[in-house]
Amino acid sequence: MHEFTAVKNIINIILKAARDNNAEKIYSIKIGIGELTMLEKNQIQYWLKLMLDEIDIAKNSKLNLHIIKGVIRCQECNFKGPLESTMELNHLFPVIKCPECESNNIEIIKGDRCLVEEMEVDKYNESISGGDN
């Protein structure tokens, strides 16, 4: 259940962004999940939905979750591009090696992060509710 930790962090990021931007209603949240993370999209969706529905300003918000493909740079042959899944091993994880020269001396450029990208909100009018004079 490591997704729960990620969801807790995502909620904290969303609430901080909402506070910093004077959001009074969140309509949608866009999150990218790297295919090289250990995070399962459906689990994130499930827990995030449950938790967001307990938060007034985020209730019924729409979740747009998408997978960020893994991109690598090979240190041996300089190949830069997406990883390949191998059907030989018959699993859903991409094999972390260069698809060109098969070296695993590679740098991961993309796909090992879970990114809270953006959200659609209504902002309250600061001059009405934020003033303290």
Binding site: T5, A6, N9, I10, I13, A17, C114, V116, E117, V121
Partner: peptide, 15 residues
């Protein structure tokens, strides 16, 4: 309705 850009990593604190 407006878009708020966030761009923060969920697992950054652990890292």
């Amino acid at each position: 309705m407006e878009i708020v850009k966030i761009g923060k990593e969920a697992m950054k604190k652990n890292e």
